[in-house]
Design a protein around this nucleic acid. Structure first.
Lengths: 231, 231
DNA sequence: GACGATATTAACTGTCACGAACATTCTTGA
DNA sequence: TCAAGAATGTTCGTGACAGTTAATATCGTC
């Protein structure tokens, strides 16, 4: 009954150190199950026993590898940020003209957030907890994340080309883009119950995505360049 | 009618309708304590016992008036939305020219959200719970909230004056404004830990507020009108 | 001035998540 | 072949907490 753990869905391709016993696999498996649990039910809402049950291993292992519930949650969170980071790295817009690059970045973020429900929910939950469990700055250091560096690059190029207006910062642009893309996922439940779900239907979302792109561009472009937008 | 209990922090000041027995007061008192508790700790995180302890009354009363924990939470949420609604109603921009009105609405929302931490947190929490406890549409019906009606009015006037571009809707504009203003409060914890808290310092916030106004305006204005913005 | 409805209190109960302690098996390297 | 330590299983105490029971106090009202 060895059958090392196959943490489905997510890669985890065990470099099985030997035969039985696959610590990394077990860890990864726990982490994945825990991620879903915490994303769905929150820190207090998720139950260790239930997580353990969904796992290919036992409750004891969770405590063995992660110490306690909070330790597990912390690792889930850190791991989630790491994954998000990886996704951001795939973006390669350095060669694209600044206007297109910015639009693409914004709309990519929109789509990406939309499909990263678990991550968004973890961030929501962590914010409910006032960010008490965030991995330390060193581990994420957003200041030199590729997202920020990319934005910096795009903005600088736009400035040099006389297309973008001065006085803005990469972090602030990131804030704006994040706000628009995050809210779309985080507040879907309440917003759609109050204002209807038109905006969240396929057409509504395509529309919103474009508008988010528009919004960011119109925000940074020099006034006289806006008329020329989108051919 | 009974002048409900005015409990700020701990200074409970009961203008009792008679000697003892002040149902409305008790209810209001419970509601207020519960609001803070739920806003701070979430639905599962908040403990009835603790809420009861902070109350001027007992645990049994909570069950007496609200049935169970979820019932209490539901009422807290409904009440929070009601309060928010009232605040929105105070806004009176019908006589202001559309451009100014729109900016003012956006920047007012920014400030208002900023100072409604409990409300925002309740909404965050409710979204974590997928909006399962929202008061029924009839009670909030956002479609005819003053926020939407106001936006509709402003937008229409802007259109008529040839200032705003066509194809946008009040609900969508509300979505954009909400996104920017909400995120600023909801994600402060994680965002500032990753990217630093410059944006959340006083100067950062003044800046952001203006930029949110800019962003919304630039989004709706006809391209040729943007240059004239802000004198 | 008594009666039924409403409001309030304090003590109790059953459940269950969490974590600790202890026991056991497997792996590795000497 | 054995020792040391890593990994895994099992069991149980405990404390926290949602929800209840039963008894009491106060009110409006006839």
């Amino acid at each position: 009954m060895t059958m090392t753990i196959q943490a489905s869905a997510d890669t985890v391709d065990h470099p099985r150190r030997s035969w039985k016993q696959d610590p990394d696999g077990v860890r990864a498996n726990i982490l994945q199950v825990a991620r879903e649990a915490f994303a769905n039910k929150g820190l207090t809402g998720a139950k260790i026993e239930e997580i353990a049950a969904r796992t290919a291993t036992s409750k004891r292992m969770i405590y063995y590898y992660f110490g306690d519930k909070e330790g597990l949650y912390r690792e889930v969170l850190a791991d989630a940020y790491r994954r998000m980071r990886v996704a951001e790295d795939t973006l390669d817009l350095e060669d694209m003209p600044p206007v297109d690059a910015l639009r693409k970045l914004a709309e990519f973020t929109f789509d990406h957030h939309r499909t990263s429900r678990d991550f968004i929910r973890l961030v929501m939950i962590e914010n409910v907890h006032n960010g008490q469990h965030m991995p330390d700055a060193a581990e994420i250091s957003g200041q030199n994340s590729s997202a920020i560096r990319l934005l910096e690059d795009i903005y600088d190029r736009g400035r040099e080309a006389g297309l973008f207006r001065p006085g803005l910062s990469a972090v602030e642009l990131h804030w704006h883009i994040s706000a628009l893309c995050y809210f779309n996922v985080s507040n879907r439940a309440t917003f759609s119950q109050i204002f209807g779900d038109e905006l969240f239907k396929p057409e509504g979302q395509t529309n919103l995505r474009r508008h988010v792109g528009d919004m960011v561009l119109r925000f940074v472009l020099m006034p006289d360049k806006i008329a020329e937008m989108r051919g």
